[in-house]
Design a binder for these strands. Structure first.
Lengths: 230, 230
DNA sequence: GCGCTATATTACCGTTTTGTGACAAAAAAA
DNA sequence: TTTTTTTGTCACAAAACGGTAATATAGCGC
């Protein structure tokens, strides 16, 4: 779950520190602020992947901030987890109505919080498939950001790494160039379809050094497939 | 602050987990139980260096357990930190009268808790601060603030030392410049991301004198990684 | 084989990212 | 105080990355 940035909005310092520690422990990048106003500033400067928002805040309350964000086009998709005092059942309902993606009650268990973050991230498709992916003797470790074949590490560029990550997460299926562009490059960029060929070529070249170029197969008329089976 | 064993007595699971995480993060060994009775059993089996005790417990309360322990010859010297709900000022006084060594209010800040534990440990002379980290033939001694490679000591500046300390504590993982800044420099300090590069460079230069510059690896597009493996 | 299309391969080159030395301010030491 | 060390920033150099286009090759129906 690396490389995700979380914005924590909590006015009480002890709890804020607690949150920061728990989140950093879980390998997340954290920005912590104490009010809705500061949260706004942070959002303007930083792209964050999720907000953890205290229900009660001085000035503009957490619920209010959540409600507003969920009505703004730019932040509609930004997952929000609300932090509420224990047992306020109506709060939970109201929070979810407003559009919060989940909520956690104080005091919170670190495990639970992390689990909920993961769940929300997974739902919004932001979870970058943590841990180790293995296909045959190929291993991709997201944490180390390292790709190895039979223990020897491969030198791949960032884009190649992401492409490989995608392939290893979805093996044995054909993907069109368009689909690959969407998934690996991101929906918002327009790039020539042919560019995919070039990156496939680069990956194959690297794999070929270990006699594994057949891992990435061409499916004429459709696209490419990553598979152990020939 | 390693090699110290802490017994946590707290009935509420969320808070118990929280405590465990915070303490383990601080390199302490933790045993966590949910009641005074279980605490008794644990004490019979394990030698612990400090107890963190919730004021309110089902059955025999925390205060009561503290009072009893402080009257038993075998446990008289065992430091106890009481956990109380916020703002119960009389509790504090009563707690200290009973013989508790310190108290912390919920919700607690991780930093504060660790600081108080350290203080209590120091007072009772248990703080040995034998923080030795070793990775390969690299050794970092937190106590002496000394970094040695195969016995020969390296001349590193304070910041470089902390950076190295962080890396050696978290090997084999990529960290972004932002993450490193947060962890090594501390959040709330605004420093150019590229400054990290410079410090990495300085560390590498020192390591290079011993042919070990490859210990710190660049992961293009992501950050840096400390690892023995190539 | 021929013609057509899809894919492979290569080279190019602007852009981005990282490395590096120098410098000055700040902090620490003397 | 003066001197020395430490540290953050900058500017430029070096390296790498990544998209494009041009060209070559391969697949396939006829």
């Amino acid at each position: 779950m690396s490389n995700l940035k979380i914005l924590v909005v909590e006015d009480e310092e002890a709890i804020r520190e607690m949150l920061v520690m728990v989140l950093e422990q879980a390998n997340l990048t954290v920005i912590a602020v104490g009010s809705a106003e500061q949260a706004r500033e942070s959002l303007a400067d930083n792209m964050v992947d999720l907000i953890i928002l205290d229900w009660m805040l001085p000035g503009i309350s957490g619920v209010e901030l959540a409600r507003r964000l969920k009505n703004e086009p730019g932040y509609k998709e930004l997952p929000i987890i609300l932090l509420t005092a224990r047992g306020e059942e109506e709060d939970k309902i109201r929070g979810l109505e407003i559009g919060a993606d989940d909520y956690v009650t104080k005091p919170f268990s670190p495990k639970e919080l992390i689990a909920r973050i993961k769940a929300v991230m997974r739902r919004s498709g932001k979870l970058s498939e943590s841990g180790q992916l293995s296909v045959g003797d190929l291993t991709l470790d997201a944490e180390q950001h390292k790709l190895t074949i039979a223990g020897r590490s491969l030198e791949v560029s960032p884009t190649e790494f992401r492409l490989m990550q995608f392939f290893m997460t979805n093996p044995d299926k054909v993907y069109s160039r368009t689909h690959l562009l969407d998934q690996v490059w991101g929906r918002s960029v327009y790039i020539e379809e042919r560019t995919v060929d070039v990156h496939i070529r680069r990956l194959r070249k690297i794999l070929a050094e270990y006699g594994r170029e057949e891992l990435i197969q061409t499916v004429r008329g459709f696209g490419y497939r990553f598979s152990m089976a020939n």
